[in-house]
């Protein structure tokens, strides 16, 4: 027998609840799933990059939510650490976007395409 977690009504009650961490987290999860799907389905490198942005921002939303003193009691939040992490991720995303765009550009110059399926040189 699988022993399920304690509260089975978690998702049902979301809409009636006041805005809390759960909402943020839900939105973050939706963003993350969208990003991931985008990464998995787009053959265009730029589309993949967008998906990455979505994934990162979905994660950021979680950090923000867990770090906000208004949403959670002081005892359980990350405090400034959450916001700091979010900032850190944003910086990282910017840097990553720059590098990724440069790769995409070079790839395009070499292959006349930015189809990621054709970029299979790393195949083992």
């Amino acid at each position: 027998m699988i022993n399920l977690p304690a509260n089975p009504m978690l998702f049902a009650n979301l809409l009636t609840e006041p805005v809390g961490v759960a909402h943020y987290v839900t939105v973050g999860a939706v963003l993350f799933v969208c990003g991931a799907l985008c990464m998995a389905t787009k053959r265009n490198a730029l589309g993949v990059l967008m998906g990455i942005e979505l994934v990162l921002n979905g994660a950021n939303l979680n950090f923000i939510a867990f770090g906000s003193p208004y949403l959670r009691s002081d005892a359980h939040n990350l405090g400034l650490d959450g916001q700091l992490m979010a900032l850190f991720v944003i910086v990282l995303a910017a840097a990553e976007a720059a590098v990724a765009l440069a790769i995409a550009l070079n790839f395009y110059n070499n292959h006349d395409s930015i189809d990621v399926d054709r970029a299979a040189q790393l195949r083992g």
Partner: peptide, 30 residues
């Protein structure tokens, strides 16, 4: 054979892997 070089597949693996990890952790915890 897993190492296809296809980014999209990798992403799929990551996602599926993460989900599997979660499921496993959950079950293991319980």
């Amino acid at each position: 054979r897993l190492q296809t070089g296809s980014l999209r597949q990798y992403v799929m693996f990551i996602v599926v892997g993460t989900v599997l990890l979660f499921v496993m952790i959950t079950f293991a915890q319980s």
